[in-house]
Design a protein around this nucleic acid. Structure first.
Lengths: 191, 191
DNA sequence: CCTTTTTATTAACCACTGTTCAATTAAATC
DNA sequence: GATTTAATTGAACAGTGGTTAATAAAAAGG
């Protein structure tokens, strides 16, 4: 009494990750069971174990993907024809836009904490941060001390961490984001 | 086949809250069972239900206490003999000190999210924020627009949210906190 | 001392968990 | 068309969860 679907409906790792993503954010790691994910996909829970060896495995695969995504966003800045000052603004505002637009991604990347998962090595987040920090340094002509860059990151993080947990779209909070970024820029640029 | 202890060891609501606090932060709401809390106290899990009607009840009682604590800290500032500028600095640094010193409190107040608990009405956090915002307005002679005050709060929140999840003491990160507060002050004061 | 009240224990209930695995079937290969 | 391989199922295992109810001991009141 088992079965296998038509090829068009075959389960993929990406399908699982996408559904798991939404659920993990809405309900937290511990409140989402493999059965729940499977049900949401319309498959049996056993099927997921064919694609991932464990729940933690699924989670880390998901998060790694998210960090790859943020890295891409940062790299996009190089294509823009702007002054350093403008690029810096884009970077900060872009960070907020990313976090508020992909709330699910941001939440799992920075906000969810779980003992079961903290064995997950911190390589991806650290690499992403370094990329971000290097860009800030570049756009400020390497005038900024390292701790100040870290401080700037934390200011952004505070904003995103808050709005991540609301239903507001980026458009909705754009004006608030502008104020926030202006304040940050004001704090690091000498008039 | 039941038993009862000597009076010196009688269980109190406060004892339960204190132990639950540590556990909730270390392991998250869903990973801490009533049995675990009881075991950590050296009592049976049934005993907790004598003092709290449910797990969620215990949690909200705990959080309400935490907000009362932060309100007290804010009120303390009135006793200080300082200029507004100095008081502002104290307020911002004090916020960080509170968050980093009472990591458990901060975590449950602002960072833990759980469907089971979000029915909890937001009265306490909102009242605390308004107290905080009013003080900022006061210390800046009501020159700051409301959204800027909110922005300042988010900058602080970003810092605390991060260090909340490390083992660093406030003393340890004091210099980083100073940098952060200086940046914030720089952003809201016209030179 | 006896009764009442307060507190604590324990078993029991039922729903749910991650994970494994034999059984099964559809698709792919020959 | 037969065989192999890849994908899926669902039962089973061995827990854990919150909560309740029956029960018993300590403390308080008389």
């Amino acid at each position: 009494m088992a079965a296998r679907r038509a090829v068009e409906k075959e389960l993929t790792q990406q399908m699982i990750i996408d559904v798991a993503h939404e659920l993990f954010v809405e309900e937290g790691y511990q409140n989402v069971s493999m059965r729940k994910i499977a049900k949401s996909l319309g498959y049996s829970h056993g099927a997921i174990y064919y694609h991932f060896t464990s729940k933690a495995d699924l989670f880390t695969a998901m998060v790694d993907q998210d960090f790859a995504m943020i890295n891409k966003e940062i790299d996009k800045l190089d294509q823009l024809e702007l002054s350093n000052k403008e690029k810096l603004r884009e970077l900060l505002l872009g960070y907020i836009q990313f976090g508020v637009t992909y709330k699910n991604h941001y939440e799992v990347m920075f906000l969810i904490r779980d003992k079961e998962i903290n064995s997950y090595d911190m390589e991806s987040p650290i690499k992403s941060y370094q990329k971000f920090a290097a860009k800030i340094a570049e756009f400020t002509n390497n005038q900024l001390p390292v701790p100040v860059i870290w401080s700037v990151f934390l200011m952004l993080h505070g904003f995103v961490a808050q709005y991540c947990r609301t239903d507001q779209s980026f458009e909705n909070i754009k004006s608030m984001a502008d104020i926030h970024v202006d304040l940050i820029l004001r704090s690091i640029t000498k008039d």
